[in-house]
Simulated scan of single mutants.
Amino acid sequence: MTESHPGPSPGNRIAHVESPTERRNPATTGIDRMSTADVLATVNAEDRSVPEAVGRALPELTRAVDTATGALRAGGRVHYVGAGTSGRLAVLDAAELAPTYNIPPGWFVPHHAGGPDALREAVEDAEDDEEAAAAELRGSVADGDFVLGLTASGRTPYVLAALRTARHRGAATALVTGNPEAPVPDEVDIRITVDTGPEVVAGSTRMKAGTAQKLVLTSFSTATMIRMGRTYSNLMVSMHATNAKLRGRTVRVLREATGLGTQSCTQALVRAGGDLKVALVHLLSGAETAAAAAALDRAGGHVREALTSVGPATP
C-alpha cells in the first residue's frame, strides 16, 4: 500500500510505495563489490526476464490494441500519459510514429508530467500534480478517444488523475503498471500488469520497468499501425520520405514487395507522385495510378483491401 504524510507544502509530501520494483533484489546485494564485467553481466541477466514478463501481459495488451484501433477508425485519438521515465518513453514512441507510418496529425498525443521542460531535466514533483493532469486532459481528450497511462508503481497521481478525467469525458482507458499489488482504479478499463520484479538497483524503475514499458509501447503502437493498414506484409508502406535515406527505402520496399527492378519501381513512384502505396497497388495489380489511388481511398488506405478490388496481391 501507499501511505501519504502531507507536510506543510506539496513539495514536502512523503509517499511510501509498496511495489516489487522498490524492493531489494537478492541477486544484486553485492553488486557494488563486483568487477565491471560482472556488473554488466548481472544487469544483462536481469534484463532477460523482461520480455517474458511482457509476454504474460499479451491478452490485456491485445484488448488495448483493439480498443485503440476502434477509436482511431471512429475518428478518435490515442493519448499516452506518463511521468518521469514513463512519460519520456511515451513521448519518444509517439514522436517516432509520424516518420515511420506517416500518421495523420493528432492520431497519437503524448502527455508528460511537467511538460517539455521535464523531457530533459527531472521535475520530480510534477508527477504529484493531479490538477495539471486534469486540466491538460480536459483540454485534449474527447468522447471516443483511448488513453493509455504508464506508471511503474501503478499509483502515480498525475497518471491516475489523467485517466480519471479521460474516463469522465467518455474515453476508454488502460494502465500499464509494473506493480501487481496496486489496486485497480475505477477509472481503468484495461490493466496491463508487467511484473518485472525488483530492480538491479532498488527503486530504479528506469531499468527493467522502463524496458518493459518500452516493449509494451512499441508492441502496442506497431500492432495498432498494422491493424490500421499502415503496412503491407512486414513492409513500411506508409512512411513519409523526407530525406535521401527514406527515399531510397521507398524504392527498396517496392522492389521487395513486387520483385521488380529499381528503374521500374522508381518510375512507378514518379507516376504515383511519390505515394508509395499508390505505386505499390499500381505495380501489383497493373491498374493505372488513378484507379489505384481510388481503390486505396475506398479501402481506408489498406493495401490488401485495395488490391481485392483492382487485382490480385502477391503473397
Rank of each mutant, 00 (worst) to 15 (best):
S219K: 12
H16V: 15
G286Y: 09
R77L: 06
V39M: 14
Y80H: 14
L148H: 10
G261Q: 06
R304E: 13
G75K: 10
S153L: 10
M1I: 15
V200K: 10
A313P: 14
G106F: 08
L148D: 04
P6S: 07
S140R: 12
D145L: 08
G149T: 02
E3H: 14
L235A: 08
G7W: 03
L97A: 09
G210V: 07
G82N: 04
G84H: 03
P51S: 13
W107A: 03
T231C: 13
T258Q: 02
P312G: 05
E131R: 15
A272L: 06
Y80K: 03
G210L: 00
E121I: 14
D66V: 11
G197S: 06
V303M: 04
A71V: 10
P180T: 02
M225Q: 07
T67S: 14
R247G: 00
T258R: 03
A37C: 07
N12Q: 12
A174V: 09
D189I: 02
T242S: 00
A212M: 08
A94P: 01
R23D: 10
G70V: 05
V237G: 00
R88G: 05
E22C: 07
S19W: 01
A126Y: 03
R33A: 13
A142R: 15
G82P: 00
G311V: 04
D117A: 15
R73S: 11
